[in-house]
């Protein structure tokens, strides 16, 4: 079970469902959620103000693509630019209802991104994710 997972999605019902699902599937201990990319960036900005040992680094971010204010890709760019070094272990999983196949292609070109899940987030999805090599390498080595 992961300790700390972040959800970024502009749809509050989706956020509610995801939280419930993560809890029911016992995927993680704690969930933090934001309704757009820039709020999520603000979280990291706030964490940077703390001493490194006090910082709360999410192990995994479920990130939607189509969002107002700052979309998923812009979030990833900003994150990589500013916070990557401070949060080296934070991985991203795209969770989207995007119908654009280019988004899936793009997700596969970045190491930080563990892949692409088409909504909704279900128990099966989570089980599958946990079986992937990427998940095992990143979260179960120690």
């Amino acid at each position: 079970m992961l300790k700390y997972v972040m959800l970024v999605d502009d749809d509050d019902v989706t956020l509610m469902i995801c939280k419930l699902r993560l809890k029911k599937s016992q995927f993680c201990e704690e969930v933090i959620s934001y309704e757009n990319g820039s709020d999520a960036i603000q979280y990291f900005e706030d964490q940077m103000a703390l001493a490194p040992e006090k910082r709360m680094a999410p192990e995994l971010i479920f990130l939607d693509i189509n969002m107002p204010v700052m979309n998923g890709w812009e979030f990833i760019e900003t994150f990589e630019e500013k916070y990557q070094q401070a949060f080296p272990k934070t991985k991203i999983k795209i969770l989207s209802s995007s119908v654009d196949p280019k988004d899936e292609e793009r997700a596969n070109t970045n190491n930080r991104i563990l892949g692409f899940i088409t909504k909704p987030l279900t128990n099966d999805n989570l089980l599958e994710l946990m079986k992937t090599e990427a998940y095992k390498n990143n979260f179960q080595t120690n």
């Binding site: 749809d11 989706t14 699902r21 189509n66 209802s97 119908v99 909704p120 279900t122 128990n123």
Partner: peptide, 15 residues
């Protein structure tokens, strides 16, 4: 896309 978001939510809720 706009339809999809609520529908996936419905599927999620049923799940």
């Amino acid at each position: 896309h706009n339809l999809r978001a609520p529908v996936t939510n419905l599927v999620g809720i049923l799940d």
